[in-house]
Amino acid sequence: MPIDAHLLLLDKDQVERLMQPADVMEAVREAFVLHSDREGRVFPVVREALATGGIFGIKSGDVPSQGLLGFKAAGFWPDNRKRGGEPHQATVMLMDPATGRPLCVIDGNAITTLRTGAAGAWGLKTLARADSASVCVFGAGVQAAIQLRFALDHLPALEKVRYVTYDGQPNPQFESAFSACCDMSLAMDKNDAVATSDIVITATPGAGALFDAQALQAGTHLNCVGADTQGKRELPDGVLARVTLVVDDREQAKRIGETQWAPSTPSVELGDLLTGKETFHRQPTDITLFDMTGLALQDLTVARMLYQRALAGRMGSSIPWPW
Rank of each mutant, 00 (worst) to 15 (best):
M1V: 15
D23R: 12
M25F: 02
E26F: 05
H35P: 01
G40W: 07
V42K: 00
R47N: 09
G53L: 03
F56W: 09
D62P: 01
Q66F: 01
F71D: 00
F71H: 07
A73I: 12
A73N: 10
D79T: 14
R81Q: 09
R81M: 06
Q89L: 14
A90C: 02
V92I: 15
P97Y: 11
P97S: 08
T99Y: 10
P102K: 02
L103F: 05
T116Q: 05
K125G: 08
A128C: 12
R129A: 15
A130T: 15
G139T: 07
V142C: 00
A144I: 11
L148R: 06
L148C: 09
F150M: 15
F150K: 06
L155Y: 02
E159V: 10
R162L: 12
R162G: 06
P172K: 08
F174R: 06
S176L: 12
S176P: 02
F178E: 09
S179R: 15
D183M: 08
M184W: 08
S185C: 12
L186I: 14
T196M: 07
I199P: 04
I199F: 07
I199M: 09
L210T: 10
Q214K: 15
Q214F: 10
L216Y: 04
A218I: 10
G219L: 11
Q230C: 13
K232F: 07
D237P: 03
R242H: 08
Q252I: 08
A253R: 05
A253L: 05
T259H: 10
K277I: 01
R282A: 12
T285D: 13
F290D: 00
T293S: 11
T293V: 14
L297I: 04
T301Y: 11
R304H: 05
Y307L: 11
R309F: 02
W323N: 14
